[in-house]
Amino acid sequence: MTGPTDARAGLRQALIHEWIKFRSVRSLVRPTLATAVVPVLGAVFVARTGSLRPDDTVLGAALTLSVTAQMLAAVVGALVITGEYGSGTIRTTFVATPRRGTVLAAKAVLLAGLTCTVALISCTLAYLVEDMMLDDDTYAQGDPFPALLGVALSFAVAALLGLAVGTLVRHSAGAVTAVVGVLLLPSLLGPLFGDAQRWVAGLSPTAALQKLTQTSDATAETVGSLGPWPSLLLVGAYTTALLLLAALKLRKRDA
């Protein structure tokens, strides 16, 4: 019978294994780098082209491409596990760490920590670049803190959602399609639900992100009527539930 110390040791070792695998797989490293670069490029583009609207904030303009970056984070989350199913290395992973729940937990911890850190640095840099390039007081600043922390957390939630979907689907193309659909479809299908549109539209990490960036496009009809932090909490709650379901399925299914 193993105790808490054994469980901690197992998770720590699994984390080391997951980090070694992650940094050695180009299909994971490249989109992660893109996740970091895209928000900054978006900030430079918006400032250079002067494409801000009068009611835009500097923060909202700086994070114009943050939705694209968040999608990349979700794709990385899915590929972290579907890539192993596709190559067959998942069997080796389960031999090295027989507790499948520990494997999933290690992937989740690595993804959440890495994605949140990358997003926080990238989006903060994008805001600072935008603020520096817009050298007048025409536009309101917005409230960057703690909003930028929430933005980083929304990236982590998107990555974990991708991991959950990838664990359930086990096929890269299917998982990527499904998780991108989860991110985009609520706002696209919201108008079909009449009076419930404001709730349906807010059921994705993308909606929470747009509220946190304080973009002028974040109307109740497009991203739901909940505030930014309650929206992030709601998305985090169902992502957690989906991860628990994925862990249950992972234990019961063959590799």
Rank of each mutant, 00 (worst) to 15 (best):
A73Y: 02
T2W: 11
Q70H: 09
D254V: 09
G162Y: 10
L185V: 11
A61W: 06
R91I: 12
P39E: 04
K252W: 11
L189Q: 00
L188C: 04
D131K: 15
V176M: 04
G142P: 09
L79W: 06
A105G: 00
L212I: 00
G174A: 11
S231G: 09
D217W: 09
R26I: 00
V176W: 06
T213F: 05
E221P: 00
I90K: 10
R12D: 10
P31E: 08
H171W: 10
Q197K: 13
T213A: 03
V67W: 05
G42H: 01
L111Y: 09
F94P: 03
Q70Y: 01
A61F: 07
M71H: 05
A14L: 08
G181L: 05
T177A: 15
Q210I: 02
T82W: 02
A106V: 04
V76W: 13
H17K: 11
A159F: 10
L120R: 04
K211M: 13
R26S: 14
R30W: 15
A105P: 00
L72Y: 03
S122D: 06
L188T: 06
L59K: 08
T93Q: 06
T89Q: 14
V169Y: 10
V40N: 05
A255S: 12
A112P: 01
R23A: 00
P54C: 07
R26Y: 03
G227D: 12
V179W: 04
G194K: 10
L226N: 01
G42E: 03
S187Q: 15
A105W: 02
Q13M: 10
F22C: 10
Q141G: 14
V46F: 12
R12T: 14
I20T: 13
L120V: 05
L243F: 02
K107C: 06
G83C: 05
P191W: 11
T64N: 12
T32D: 07
I81Y: 01
R53L: 15
E18D: 14
V180Y: 11
L134Y: 01
E130C: 13
G174P: 04
L233M: 12
S122H: 07
Q141S: 15
L168Y: 02
R100K: 14
C116T: 11
T89A: 13
A108N: 01
L183Q: 08
S204Q: 11
M133P: 00
S24T: 15
P205M: 08
